[in-house]
Design a binder for these strands. Structure first.
Lengths: 236, 236
DNA sequence: CGACCCCTCGCTATTTTGGGGGAGGGTTAA
DNA sequence: TTAACCCTCCCCCAAAATAGCGAGGGGTCG
């Protein structure tokens, strides 16, 4: 059984936000989760979410502007890697109060979130929530985290597509070779190494670096890599 | 016989890195592997490994900084799922030379690696190595890969837990000046600009860049900035 | 007190990048 | 059929970053 491939299949069918919501709900069931949340914020502050929380909890969350104190949200804005809820700082008084309310609202005790950065400063958060003990959770994450990580990125791509993100003005997308190049640069390789890795000449490589710099409007290679990372154009 | 449960039991006993190393060696024997490697890199570039390779191969690997050309390492950094060594790209000249040396050092021809991403940018790699033909390897993986996958994650959790003890000393974080420097580098400024901005000499600035690079275990400035970003040490 | 880190600054090579040209052949969509 | 990319490769030369050394003063902690 390859859940992941099925999911990608099913996701490619979705063309409306309603179908996207349904897909999120199915995904929760298939992966046997307590809850699943997709939450996107674009560069203009516009938000969209598809989630499986109880409506009254969502309402209260929005009404109280809990995003301000939610350690998950706060933690993920500064993180580029998936983050375990357990490792977050829950010590603040507000955090504990929030935690209590969340528990009452049916949230499980275990969870992790995947921060996703899309083009033009778009930011999305995919959160997975479960109710079990630490051992079961460890086994769960080891089995399914990889899938869910990939799916998170598919989710975001799909959501952006459905929302019909308008044509990129200033930021043209990077070509595959440009992405390769920036990705390898982000790992610390120099031009000679990368050229060898990609099996192309260093001359060619320079063209990619320069065109990527140009497209991103970056002052130098370091800048280009930093921009590509913060805009989610590459993943390290 | 439930090897997996036994292993978990034995692992829960380990409280020191020595015991962890012994456990890794036992694990190799119990699962009848040629070699087993646990290798962890934390967010500040601190590394720890427990493995069964011959010491002189380990020494040579470190000395030659083979991690830079090792297709297993390079492949896994970009992978979220367990990866078969066979499917990696071994075509580069350096890769083949590396493969030859590895063979001489007693490594088997078959292997797979499990990339594991932990909190705060921690990254670990569990590699399983075996010497046999393709058929036997296929039967081996189908039988034991699931167990080894789980165990890999237990290994990582255990290693993190053990390292968490004040045994290994505190993880050095970036100094304020180092953060300033990396943050400005991430915006595309060059050393002259940054020195001016921070109102210090370029000489001083260089010390920050170099110490940051050193702390992060980064190969160059671009790498250091990319690491600082992905680990949430700086925000742009 | 010593050890260790932080901040500050300097020197001389050497290596790596960057700027600005050029070229040819491929695909894709207006 | 153009135009607009994309991939590939080459040249020369200047600018920037890095390696490998050095130095001193300040703070903290055991």
């Amino acid at each position: 059984m390859n859940r992941l491939v099925d999911m990608q299949d099913a996701l490619s069918q979705a063309t409306t936000l309603e179908e996207f919501q349904t897909f999120v709900e199915n995904l929760r069931d298939v992966y046997d989760l307590e809850h699943l949340v997709y939450h996107s914020v674009n560069s203009t502050g516009g938000q969209y979410a598809a989630l499986t929380y109880k409506p009254d909890w969502v309402e209260r969350y929005i009404e109280q502007d809990y995003a301000r104190i939610d350690p998950v949200v706060q933690g993920c804005y500064r993180q580029f890697q998936p983050i375990e809820w357990k490792t977050l700082d829950w010590s603040a008084k507000a955090s504990r109060a929030f935690l209590g309310e969340a528990g009452e609202a049916g949230l499980g005790n275990q969870g992790f979130s995947v921060p996703i950065r899309g083009p033009s400063g778009q930011f999305a958060l995919v959160s997975v929530n479960h109710k079990c003990n630490d051992e079961m959770w460890a086994s769960f994450t080891s089995e399914r985290a990889a899938d869910l990580l990939l799916i998170s990125h598919y989710l975001n791509e799909k959501a952006l597509q459905i929302e019909g993100n308008p044509h990129r003005g200033p930021t043209r997308s990077l070509s595959p070779r440009e992405k390769d190049t920036l990705t390898l640069l982000a790992t610390g390789a120099n031009r000679a190494n990368i050229a060898e890795t990609l099996k192309i000449s260093e001359s060619t490589l320079r063209v990619y670096i320069e065109s990527a710099r140009f497209k991103l409007g970056a002052a130098n290679t370091t800048h280009a890599v930093a921009m590509a990372l913060t805009h989610g154009l590459i993943v390290v």
